[in-house]
Computed example of a mutant assay.
Amino acid sequence: MTRRINLNADIAESWGAYSIGNDAELMTIIKSANVACGFHAGDANSMHRLCLLAKQEGVSVGVHPGFNDLWGFGRRRIQMKASDLEYMVAYQIGALQAMARYAGIPVTHLKAHGALNNMAAEDEEYALAIGRAIKTVDPSLIYVVLYGSKMQWAAETLGLRVAREGFVDRAYLDDGNLASRALSGTVLKDPEAARRHTLRMVLDGEVTTINGKTIKVEVDTLCVHGDEPTAVAVARSARTALEQAGVTVVPLTEMDL
């Protein structure tokens, strides 16, 4: 059987008069889009545009909820009650579902953004809060989680569909979490480096950490960050390498999860 993988991007992170990322070109490369829902970035118009583009390109669309942090682009860690976080995520699910209705497409998954994703990877209360929002609003949504994280545990505990995620353009710590962007070299901007990193994750099931340690990873989907200027080149390099290796890149909805 031909091996399959999903390639996704965190995308639609423009708002108002501010444009971030090359959504149109990136959408011709990826197969699933994680759409900002107005808290860390995005607005009704950017969500609507992205949903129409997804329909045109055959890309599945998911919720990309973040902290209410436009100033910090959702990359500042915020401590809050789990119940408040749950409702905040539910609110963002509803926002994207409304815009997707205008395009006539379903919302298929949820992948947390930035600091929320990093915190939920380590904090079971945050991970469960996100999971409860999914289960309450639309339990058919796929919970996209960092492999081996508290989010994976929460998804399995709550009986949700889960997709284990790896990162094409990020370096890892020894514990399997992502290395901080504050550290030099932890965002992979060179397409060739990203290509090697991607193939090793998918074909060998492992990555080398920033400390030189080899750790195991199992992935169903791979992420590229759409706000990076190098996103299109990195995504294209990863997809080309996967297809040359005999791996079929498909929407998340076509993965056997």
Rank of each mutant, 00 (worst) to 15 (best):
W15N: 07
A245N: 06
A238C: 12
T157G: 03
M255L: 14
T157W: 02
T214P: 08
A100F: 07
V145L: 06
Q244D: 15
Q92W: 01
T253Q: 09
R76T: 12
G42T: 05
D174R: 00
T186A: 03
A245I: 01
I30P: 14
N177P: 04
V250P: 06
Y147H: 15
N8M: 01
V144Y: 00
V168D: 01
A171F: 00
N45A: 13
S60K: 11
I29L: 08
A9R: 04
A194H: 03
K55Q: 13
G185V: 12
S46F: 05
K81N: 08
H113D: 13
G185Q: 03
Y87H: 13
M119E: 15
R3V: 04
H64V: 11
L173V: 00
P191S: 03
A121E: 03
R4V: 10
L257H: 14
V162S: 12
P106S: 07
L7D: 08
M47L: 04
R195N: 07
A171W: 00
L70N: 02
Q244K: 15
R75F: 05
A127S: 09
V63G: 08
R164F: 01
I215Y: 08
E218G: 14
E254G: 11
K135I: 08
Y18W: 14
V217A: 07
V107L: 04
G185H: 03
L128S: 13
V168E: 00
V89M: 00
F67Y: 15
R49C: 09
T230Q: 14
D69H: 05
Y147N: 14
P106W: 02
N22T: 06
H64T: 11
E218S: 15
H48M: 13
I5V: 12
A233C: 03
P139Q: 04
N211G: 11
L96S: 02
Q56W: 02
N211F: 02
V249I: 09
T186F: 01
N34D: 11
L222P: 11
S83T: 15
T208K: 12
M47K: 04
R181V: 09
C51E: 02
L203S: 03
A44C: 09
M27A: 11
D23P: 06
L110T: 06
H64K: 07
V224A: 04
P65Y: 04
N6E: 08
L203N: 06
E218A: 13
H40I: 09
D123W: 02
M47Y: 04
A36C: 13
V63P: 11
Q92E: 10
E192F: 12
R101W: 07
L50P: 10
A90Q: 09
E228Q: 15
T2H: 12
N118W: 00
H40V: 10
F39I: 02
Y102G: 06
